[in-house]
Design a protein around this nucleic acid. Structure first.
Lengths: 183, 183
DNA sequence: GTCTATACGGGGATAGAC
DNA sequence: GTCTATCCCCGTATAGAC
């Protein structure tokens, strides 16, 4: 793994575990096993570090959209399943970046907003009804919110069973959208 | 208004507008129109300021539960309507405290978790089905997440219409819970 | 009850050695 | 490509004046 990636991993990890205040250059460098000077070679400023994280999130989200579009279970089920915390690269990058968005970081705020819009559009394409799509999107947002609160320490939906139950509820919403389309 | 309340208002406002990093003692004091020394008379440390915010949130949430229980429209509709950002005291205190929870502040994390559990219990009492209740809770969480991302700059559900549409979708979930109870 | 002055540590960033 | 040394600013907190 490149040193850059190791540094971004460390930055993410600290943001998730301890929050923005703890995510200092020194802490990030130490966690990645380099010195502050070493970090500043790869990322000449803190803004550069943020930009690196934003770029990583953007790439991961684009890959995820492809998988979501092609998911055999359907985009909606795929979206809900992957919104529950699993510790995936996308989970981590998104929750970490959300924290920066809350610090009024414009780049972070933009990318998080854009990703949400793209998800919404994909769901609308699949099920047709905008109000129901928004409700489904909000359920996923709720899962991310819960992950963010704990830094992804545990799933909101503990165990496979509650996720299955939630998916079943969401299936009903998809059916409802189908019924509305038919009428 | 007491000086204490003015200081807590200022703390909240900075947390919402600019995030935890900007919420320094000096910034809070300035926004409340007192000096740093003045602030430290009322709240002898930053931890005391956090504790003050947590206590305020707890009180507001307790009042809100009473209103939710007695809401003529039902607890679920009340919950969804008030989860959309309106700039209420509870909105502000909850989103501000959520940010502290993400900084691994134990007191903040506990109170936010507890409030969520109480909401869930209230909804379960009213509609019976736990999985559906959890889905409804997550929709509310999603609304809070969106408010938190922007510091409550705007509603996720712009305009009265999209809120009404969402409430309609949620009504279907409540109906579904009723149907499950009947069977 | 609120202010100023001051101490101290930590965070971001630069220069330059290796 | 990574390290140490150093600078300056800012955030927290204490002491004490008014």
């Amino acid at each position: 793994m490149s040193a850059r990636d190791a540094l971004l991993d460390a930055y993410e990890a600290i943001l998730l575990d301890d929050g923005v205040r703890a995510a200092t250059l020194e802490a990030v460098a130490a966690r990645a096993g380099v010195s502050k000077g070493g970090l500043l070679y790869h990322f000449p400023s803190k803004d550069a570090l943020v930009a690196g994280l934003v770029a990583r999130l953007e790439a991961l989200a684009a890959e995820d959209r492809d998988r979501m579009r092609q998911a055999p279970e359907g985009a909606v089920r795929y979206y809900i399943r992957t919104s529950n915390w699993s510790g995936s690269s996308l989970d981590r990058a998104l929750v970490a970046t959300s924290q920066l968005a809350q610090e009024s970081d414009v780049a972070a705020r933009d990318v998080v907003a854009r990703i949400g819009q793209e998800w919404l559009e994909l769901i609308v394409e699949q099920i047709g009804d905008r109000a129901i799509s928004r409700a489904i999107l909000l359920i996923g947002d709720g899962l991310y919110y819960n992950a963010a609160l704990t830094g992804g320490t545990y799933n909101t939906l503990t165990g496979e069973q509650s996720l299955e139950e939630l998916l079943e509820v969401v299936d009903h919403l998809v059916e409802l959208a189908g019924a509305r389309r038919a009428s």
